[in-house]
């Protein structure tokens, strides 16, 4: 269970880790506690599975990648197989089964358009794929998963 301290630590640590020599000391100051307590608690929260990862959130476009969202209609009996092929691409970061006719949705990051189209063409031709819709973004308004824990 998360203590009140854990929640305030998690609220801060989701966005405010700085590029300074002792980043956890700065977090500790905000929480009026010690650097050691912050570090130990973060280790605990990571081991317990509350924290998936600590690190930078990159802007894929600024790093020269292109991204898209793809929706598929896949025949039920082929779903696991098709999902497996999709998962094999390292540029696929999210692959979710969803309750709709378009029942498999994944995001794909690629170094260029040619590579993206090659991958989509392969997936489009897999057995069991009835329909594939490529849905690239035209405008990004928000990308920030942040849970305010109360």
């Amino acid at each position: 269970m998360l203590t009140a301290f854990d929640k305030s630590l998690l609220n801060i640590i989701q966005t405010d880790l700085s590029f300074e020599k002792r980043p956890f000391a700065l977090v500790a100051k905000k929480l009026e506690t010690t650097e050691t307590i912050v570090i130990e608690r973060l280790k605990f929260l990571k081991e317990q599975g509350f924290i998936r990862r600590i690190g930078p959130f990159f802007d894929s476009t600024k790093l020269g990648y292109i991204g898209t969202l793809v929706a598929l209609e896949v025949k039920k009996e082929y779903l696991a197989q098709v999902a497996g092929v999709i998962n094999s691409y390292y540029g696929v970061t999210h692959n979710y089964e969803r309750e709709a006719d378009l029942n498999l949705w994944f995001t794909l990051l690629s170094p260029n358009l040619l590579k993206q189209d090659e991958i989509l063409e392969t997936i489009r031709n897999l057995d069991g794929v009835v329909r594939l819709l490529n849905l690239p973004a035209t405008q990004k308004f928000k990308v920030s998963v942040q849970f305010s824990l109360t």
């Binding site: 998360l2 998690l10 640590i13 989701q14 966005t15 405010d16 880790l17 700085s18 590029f19 973060l42 317990q48 599975g49 509350f50 924290i51 998936r52 990862r53 600590i54 690190g55 930078p56 959130f57 990159f58 802007d59 600024k62 790093l63 990308v143 920030s144 998963v145 849970f147 824990l149």
Partner: peptide, 19 residues
């Protein structure tokens, strides 16, 4: 990287189910 926007944010990614 942060000033130029290559890094949008630095911090922890939570497992939303667990929280």
């Amino acid at each position: 990287y942060r000033q130029s926007g290559k890094i949008r944010k630095m911090g922890a990614v939570l497992r939303h189910r667990e929280v």
